[in-house]
Design a protein around this nucleic acid. Structure first.
Length: 472
RNA sequence: GCUCCCUUCGUCUAGUGGCCAAGGACGCUGCCCUCUCAAGGCGGAAACACGAGUUCGAGUCUCGUAGGGAGCGCCA
């Protein structure tokens, strides 16, 4: 059997993490089984669908590297096909025109709710004699759902699910203008596209039996269904625009690597023993839809942060540097005159959680500063530090080969000569060169800042100390 | 209201009747290391929603209760 899966978003917003994970699972199931992954845009709701959303969704998938083999296929291009199938269903008596007004339906629903019943269409037009056809009303088309029996399927993630046909009613498959509705178009599309496995959010569980009945009416074999649970916000509440439902590209802008987000997302609801770290290749090799959980899970930024750091440290520095360049750009920092970005990555990756943070904390490698951080200066640029700083300045100036090794040696030697421990030299030096008390190891920092800038900043620090001495 | 689905540490999870006085990971936390911040090493606290039943034995099977979620559209 050829495995074919699809991701079928409706273009009414960006690609958020829930959708991204559904797409990922669908993608992995295809890749893990040598199948194809198809992107279909469900844009039959012309009112709400936008071009910008289509672009945003594809941007998100591209950033994550979720490549589709076919598509994007637009439902709006397939209206003639839907019309054809609707005609077929009508001709076979599997669908019928319904003239009921929305008002009548609304009343019906209210009455049923009040009586404690599940609201359902009552089938008024189901067996109407054509001679009774009311004039002047353009009807909708309803699917003739079986009255008896039940629908059962073996869900790929939930196991057997059974729903009785008397829970279902005759759903509308075409509006008065002939435009098709969701539960109908998915079936026609999945059938025509030869989709073998439908992997989607569990909010579709209740739609599945209706769709299976349509497949049967069409004499088509239904695909296999796998309903994956939803992702909740940090607080356990449903993701909504107010609760962290942001587009995945927001994570890119916030300094996350796609490898990290993907790794995080795949572990939300899926596991492989005790393993936590998965590259996309690992996922393709190990993923099995049967190992997906049934329970909804909450998004946890702390763990994403940890994974992001892991991937910043593990991926080739050159690769991470490309993503870092974007962050410097966002901050308006010109990196052309400073150290190579890959070197920044190798010294900073283990001390930050995101690339954004990395760029922010690396500003001093590229730009001079006007003043020292007040607290750091107060503590470290004191009169007592003047001599050590002067000494280290001289030692640094004498260095010809500006390498971390030589710098390290110079600091050790200076400390020893002055009978001080390393911290007494390194910390004032750090504040002098960085402007603040936090940086990578002092030798690497000096190395990256460069000799000229280091000496200039040390002079600035000595001036600062001198002023302080004069003031007392 | 009705139907369907879900329920192991704060969070993500392992667990498919005995290997579980429940393991891993993030986070939190103690100690060590240390030029700052980190990273790292070694420890620690922390969970089977509840109640019945089946069984020699239940986190694992069944039923019920509670709690949560979804659906019940001429939205997708």
């Amino acid at each position: 059997m050829t495995i074919r899966t699809r991701f079928a978003p409706s273009p009414t917003g960006f690609l958020h993490v829930g959708g991204a994970r559904t797409a990922l699972f669908s993608y992995l199931h295809a890749r893990a089984n040598d199948g194809s992954f198809i992107l279909r845009i469900e844009d039959t709701d012309i009112e709400r669908s936008t071009e910008a959303s289509i672009q945003a969704i594809m941007d998100g998938m591209n950033w994550l590297g979720l490549e589709w083999d076919e598509g994007p296929i637009f439902q709006t291009d397939r209206f003639p096909r839907y019309a054809e199938v609707i005609e077929q269903l009508k001709a076979e008596g599997e669908a019928y025109p319904c003239y009921c007004s929305k008002e009548r339906l609304e009343k019906l629903r209210e009455g049923q709710m009040e009586a404690g019943l599940k609201p359902k269409y009552d089938g008024k037009c189901r067996d109407m004699d054509p001679v009774d056809t009311p004039a002047g009303i353009t009807p909708v088309t309803r699917f003739r759902n079986p009255l008896e029996g039940e629908v059962e399927w073996n869900d790929l993630v939930r196991g057997s699910i059974t729903i009785s046909n008397d829970e279902l009613d005759d759903l509308v498959i075409a509006r008065p203008d002939g435009s098709p509705t969701y539960n109908f178009t998915v079936v026609v599309d999945d059938m025509d596209m030869g989709i073998s496995h439908v992997i989607r959010g569990d909010d579709h569980i209740n739609n599945t039996p209706r769709q299976i009945n349509i497949y049967r009416a069409l004499d088509a074999e239904p695909p296999l269904f796998g309903h994956v649970p939803m992702i909740l916000g940090e607080d356990g509440a449903r993701l909504s625009k107010r609760h962290g439902a942001v587009g995945v590209t927001q994570y890119r802008d916030d300094g996350y690597l796609p490898e990290a987000l993907l790794n995080y997302l795949v572990r939300l609801g899926w596991s492989h023993g005790d393993e936590e770290i998965f590259s996309i290749d690992d996922m393709v090799r190990l993923f099995d839809i049967a190992d997906v959980n049934r329970k909804p899970s909450s998004f946890n930024t702390e763990k994403l942060n940890w994974l992001n750091q892991h991937w910043m440290r593990s991926l080739p520095a050159e690769q991470v540097a490309e993503a870092l360049a974007w962050q410097f750009e966002l901050l308006g920092i010109d990196t052309s005159t400073g150290p190579a970005l890959a070197d920044i990555v190798s010294v900073q990756a283990e001390r930050v959680k995101t690339l954004k943070e990395m760029a922010e904390q690396s500003r001093m490698f590229y730009e001079d500063f006007e003043e020292f951080d007040a607290n750091a200066a107060k503590k470290n640029l004191r009169p007592v530090s003047r001599e050590p700083v002067e000494a280290i300045r001289a030692a640094l100036e004498a260095i010809e080969e500006w390498t971390p090794e030589n710098l390290h040696q110079a600091i050790i030697d200076t400390a020893e000569t002055m009978g001080l421990n390393m911290g007494k030299i390194a910390q004032p030096l750090r504040v002098a060169v960085c402007g603040s008390g936090v940086s990578p190891s002092i030798d690497k920092t000096l190395w990256l800042v460069g000799k000229e800038r280091c000496l200039k900043r040390i002079d600035m620090a000595l001036e600062f100390i001198a002023k302080r001495e004069a003031a007392t």
